[in-house]
Design a binder for these strands. Sequence first.
DNA 1: GTACAATGTTAGACGATACTAACAAAATGT
DNA 2: ACATTTTGTTAGTATCGTCTAACATTGTAC
Lengths: 219, 219
Amino acid sequence: MLSQTEENYLKVLYNLISFRGEASVNEISKQLDIKMPTVNSMMKRLSEKGLVLYESYKPLKLTNEGKKIAALIIRKHRLTEMYLVEKMGFGWEKVHEIAEQIEHIQSEAFFAKMDELLGYPKVDPHGSPIPDINGVLRSETYIPLKDFNVGDKVVFMAVLHSSEDLLSYLNTKKLELGMIIAIIATESFEESITIQYDNNKVETLTSKVSSKLLVKLIK
Amino acid sequence: MLSQTEENYLKVLYNLISFRGEASVNEISKQLDIKMPTVNSMMKRLSEKGLVLYESYKPLKLTNEGKKIAALIIRKHRLTEMYLVEKMGFGWEKVHEIAEQIEHIQSEAFFAKMDELLGYPKVDPHGSPIPDINGVLRSETYIPLKDFNVGDKVVFMAVLHSSEDLLSYLNTKKLELGMIIAIIATESFEESITIQYDNNKVETLTSKVSSKLLVKLIK
DNA sequence: GTACAATGTTAGACGATACTAACAAAATGT
DNA sequence: ACATTTTGTTAGTATCGTCTAACATTGTAC
């Protein structure tokens, strides 16, 4: 059984690897706000346990077992977020901190019950896919809104790296998952994008925002 | 902020003190299955933090702050148990282990939401009172079923030290909180008690069981 | 009231998880 | 290609929470 600390390292490692293909001691250090030497020794420990592939000065990788364990932690996190939003009435911007703690609860039955009560959801409240009970993640790949052009119509599918601030901002704009968005202008110098959605609401978004809204094109 | 470990010591100390009036290093050691020297040094640490009154070779006490903190942890535990039973459909014998972990979640909002969704319950699924948000516990005092006599009629109010085994046993007998119980026989040598309840079910209970069923007399 | 048992305490060790300081390797800029 | 910056590693230290061994005190039995 892994400690909560070990679980957190695995999770961050998994997320870094799935985004960038690889992970470094330095990146983990920044993500977790833990100094590099500490991360280094933890990577060696997790390597001893057969969860991480560690070689000096090389990028870090997860073993298959490491990947599976990490995915199951992420499953618990995302199921919890969904439960908090759907069954307890929390706003999507409030649930991350709580799920960050509940993801470490050791109880198959607890998470199985959540899953059942939610009707076996495939995505969390931010549109991120929920790995299945075997740690397998089936995800469509969406594209950031900023990469589209005037005239395109897209569906808002997920929020990337969703922070409370960003989610609250989207709340104020009433911009919600599943909405259809039409790109009506782009401004290449300041990299802003102007969109129309939900019965003619119009907003101009900075690239900071539009790079984090994942969408799919309507053919 | 206290560690989970510290919270567990406080909770056990609180429970021991409320049952027996005082607590010893030895009792805590047994309850937590942790060796006496470890308990001893933890008592000193909690004393440093102003939560425990520690004097060599004297019984242990909690300070007012220690009591309040312990009561709030117990509040979180019991609210969680109630939530798991009422909102998630777990049996009353399954919830202790999960609540034991969730009680350490740090989130005012999470427990406030549970409380609200439950309609501000006063007792947990085993009949134990839930301390209020200030750590104040208002409890009636109930009496073990074994202390009653033939002809008495009582209401089943709570289960003492409820273990999974005991609760499962009560499930098989369909003996539930709130039921009216008539004492129809007692056997003083083997200390058994025969009761009638819930539309003429009749059972003979050993003192091991009847000492843990808390009831109140119907006048 | 002395011996023995039970309980409590002290001292020293260890693993987990963090740190800082110092050094090594790799990447980068000019 | 060399100097500098960034990244990674090693070594040594600290705290938390656990242990065992040894010793001290208190309680109990005869």
